[in-house]
Simulated scan of single mutants.
Amino acid sequence: MRVLILGGSGFVGRCVADEAVGRGCDVTVFNRGSKAAPEGVTVLTGDRLGDLSALETGTWDAVVDTWSAQGEAVRRTAGLLSGRAGHYTYVSSRSVYAGTEREKAEDAPLVAGTEEGYAGDKLRGELGVRVFDGPVLLGRAGLILGPYEDIGRLPWWLNRLARGGPTLAPGPRELPLQYIDARDLAIFLLDAAGRGVGGPFDLVSRSGHTTMGEFLEVAAEVTGGRAQLRWTSPEVVTAAGIEPWTQLPVWLPPGELHTFLHGGDVSKAYGEGLVCRPVRATIEDTWAWLRSLPGDAPQRADRPQVGLDPQVEAKVLGE
């Protein structure tokens, strides 16, 4: 396939580019050129909110759009590429769903078009891509982990566990987790584009693909086995004022929000061929990538820093 990736140098876009190049696709990436491009791609330079002139010519079999800010940018490229691309994938988010009721899966109600922030931006991106004149796939991803992560969730846990010592492990150990490795997301998106598949898909692993216990125990082992996991009840964690998801990445206490983010129905995606690799593979490969970097892991400027202050951790553990 001739594949155009709008983005293509960071996290999900980078994984899509790597996968497409590995398949022998003719890959073009369009971005601002602020990061090194993956090997084997053609680079077009421009700005999603400004100059799109580099996209005014050319034809592609598939477009993958990873934009996560103003929805107008998606509408502009979808309109510009209509008639010159066979398929358009917009990497959206499960954040577009209104509330936390997930009984209807992909048919659940969506947030209002006036919603502020990330959820509203993703919804407006979904609305904007409707101007494309071919099949459109809406990849509503959940929690995304893996190499090239620039949000900091799995990298924070790996670096914390590598430091060793008594480590706050938020329980319960059997708490189910639901996420997707960015490379498995890339594989699904390219496979679906090749078949011309359209429509919305919730793209995460099955609930319980791993548990909080397996996730942290494997990560502790992979990073050298120096961490002593101190399993702590959700009540103790929240009573200490620790913010789930941000101060303790990935983790949410049992309840409605956990059920929404880690208990979604993904039967449609699995029916279309989604396959998720074991958690150990994601952890081992992310740790290998982190150790290969000359400095700290990349961090997106538009996302908050994650992680727990060591003094807060020590206080909760009574250290």
Results as ranks from 00 to 15, higher is better:
216 L>A: 04
190 L>H: 02
217 E>P: 00
81 L>M: 10
207 S>K: 07
256 E>T: 15
282 T>Y: 01
128 G>Y: 03
5 I>H: 01
241 G>P: 11
315 K>Q: 15
3 V>Y: 04
10 G>N: 10
181 D>A: 09
125 G>V: 04
304 P>A: 09
209 H>T: 09
248 L>T: 07
8 G>F: 04
108 A>Q: 03
35 K>L: 14
27 V>W: 11
244 P>K: 15
214 E>G: 09
62 A>Q: 15
188 F>A: 09
166 P>N: 14
186 A>Q: 07
114 T>I: 04
256 E>A: 15
141 A>Y: 08
77 T>A: 13
84 R>W: 06
81 L>Y: 06
81 L>A: 09
158 L>T: 07
32 R>Q: 11
40 G>P: 10
257 L>G: 00
185 L>H: 02
274 L>R: 03
202 D>M: 13
145 L>S: 01
193 A>Y: 06
178 Q>W: 12
257 L>N: 04
61 D>Y: 05
199 G>R: 12
96 V>D: 00
133 D>T: 05
36 A>C: 05
142 G>R: 10
29 V>F: 08
208 G>S: 14
309 D>Y: 02
71 G>F: 03
219 A>W: 01
158 L>Q: 08
10 G>Q: 14
28 T>L: 10
317 L>N: 01
211 T>I: 07
133 D>V: 03
137 L>C: 14
37 A>M: 06
33 G>R: 11
125 G>D: 03
104 K>Y: 01
271 G>I: 02
56 E>G: 00
145 L>M: 11
153 R>E: 02
241 G>N: 12
45 T>H: 07
309 D>T: 05
213 G>T: 04
88 Y>S: 10
23 R>C: 08
289 W>F: 02
117 G>E: 11
207 S>Q: 03
289 W>K: 02
159 N>T: 12
296 D>G: 14
294 P>A: 12
163 R>I: 10
5 I>E: 01
64 V>H: 12
114 T>G: 14
27 V>N: 12
148 Y>T: 08
142 G>S: 06
29 V>Q: 05
258 H>L: 01
272 E>N: 07
149 E>V: 01
195 R>W: 00
80 L>E: 06
3 V>N: 00
175 L>F: 10
169 A>W: 02
22 G>V: 04
58 G>K: 06
306 V>C: 12
52 L>Q: 14
319 E>D: 05
71 G>T: 03
208 G>M: 13
75 R>D: 12
228 Q>F: 04
54 A>R: 08
128 G>P: 01
126 E>K: 12
44 L>I: 11
65 D>W: 03
